[in-house]
């Protein structure tokens, strides 16, 4: 059989996003919504007794950008997520194995597991001077600078979709990374883009919110 040879390994970067549409921006640039589903997402689970917190450097609710550009987030009290550029899951996982040794679920004092959730999570980024105002139309948390400063990590409902969020400002511009279960990805993008229409963003045909 020759068929097998035709395949070869599919690269991690040939990744189909649930959102096949380019970034949308308001004409005045005050808000932009962009797909970021291909972001590498690696989840680490481990209790406080495992030293994972110390190793990863951030507690629940906070994040830190590493020198290599990866963003380490304390997504739950015993859970961290590393966000990095597309296609880096293997490298990040390998590096973590150096730190934690085994992490497929082996027993031990330092019970730590690592799982690549890149494919399981859709992601988008909303940024700009009106990003907070737009997001606050469909997310009930207090997103002011004091309650939700740059680096804040939190989970919340966005347009009725359960999401993991990071406030991750870029170049002094307010910005949020919003991740959700992959199958909700298209709906989340539509809901967020719809919230931005108040600030001038126009939504292309086929991406309107149902219901009005």
């Amino acid at each position: 059989m020759s068929i097998r040879k035709e395949h070869g390994n599919v690269s991690e970067t040939t990744f189909n996003s649930p959102v096949d549409i380019g970034p949308l921006s308001a004409p005045d640039g005050s808000v932009t919504v962009a797909d970021a589903a291909s972001t590498t997402k690696v989840q680490i689970r481990g209790g406080a007794d495992t030293g994972a917190a110390a190793e990863l450097g951030v507690g629940y609710g906070r994040s830190q950008r590493r020198a290599d550009g990866a963003l380490v987030c304390g997504t739950r009290p015993d859970e961290w997520t590393i966000y990095a550029g597309a296609g880096q899951a293997s490298a990040i996982t390998a590096a973590l194995s150096e730190v934690f040794g085994h992490f497929q679920g082996e027993p031990g004092e330092g019970f730590v597991t690592v799982i690549d959730i890149t494919h399981g999570r859709a992601m988008l980024r909303i940024s700009g001077s009106n990003a907070t105002a737009a997001l606050n139309k469909i997310c009930n948390l207090d997103l002011s600078d004091e309650l939700t400063p740059d680096g804040a990590v939190f989970s919340a409902s966005v347009g009725n979709v359960g999401c993991d969020l990071v406030r991750d400002d870029e170049g002094g511009q307010t910005s949020f990374l919003i991740g959700c279960e992959r199958s909700f990805g298209k709906f989340l993008f539509i809901a967020v883009a719809d919230a931005c229409t108040e600030f001038g963003l126009s939504v292309p045909h086929g991406w309107e919110l149902h219901g009005h």
Binding site: P18, I138, G159, V161, S183
Partner: peptide, 8 residues
């Protein structure tokens, strides 16, 4: 605006 998520 009615937010009734659909999973795909």
């Amino acid at each position: 605006r009615i937010h009734e998520p659909v999973r795909r």
